[in-house]
């Protein structure tokens, strides 16, 4: 990845106001592969009976992480938007634990990027909180234009 691009993505979590509001952090950036996380926060509780964070906050993390994986794809040449995102919730994120999301942009065409995301709480990576698949808009680099 070009250094300028890399720097941009590193600031992704703090430059985007909603990501900043949720205190998101960039944990790993490789080509088309990104890990992001956010801390447990009582303001994000969706179910007061259990203290579990609202699914919507996890959607925001997974969408951001998915978008970042598209952005860092080696063939990407511009910003992209989410076309659709489907999230399946496997289990509640344990209250108090940091929430992680790992996204892979596993296929691109000239116009569309396909993404898979997994989210988990704390160190429970083998017991995902949620998985997602998404399609994002994509503009492929012109051949030869490096």
């Amino acid at each position: 990845m070009e250094p300028a691009l890399k720097e941009m993505v590193e600031h992704f979590a703090t430059a985007l106001p909603h990501c900043k509001a949720l205190n998101m952090r960039m944990d790993l950036i490789k080509d088309a592969h990104v890990i992001m996380s956010m801390p447990y926060d009582e303001r994000l509780i969706g179910d007061p009976a259990t203290g579990v964070i609202h699914g919507g906050a996890i959607s925001a993390l997974m969408d951001s992480c998915g978008g970042a994986s598209v952005f860092t794809h080696p063939e990407n040449s511009s910003a992209s938007v989410t076309l659709d995102l489907r999230i399946d919730y496997m289990r509640s994120a344990k209250p108090g634990e940091r929430i992680f999301a790992e996204a892979h942009c596993f296929h691109v065409t000239r116009t569309v990027a396909f993404v898979r995301v997994v989210a988990w709480a704390g160190d429970q990576k083998d017991e995902p909180t949620a998985t997602a698949t998404g399609a994002f808009s994509f503009t492929r680099k012109k051949r030869g234009a490096e």
Binding site: L16, H18, H54, G56, A60, D63, L85
Partner: peptide
């Protein structure tokens, strides 16, 4: 507006 925020609002 962040797509994740819109999705969160729809889910809520």
């Amino acid at each position: 507006i962040h797509g994740g925020a819109t999705a969160a609002f729809l889910e809520t």
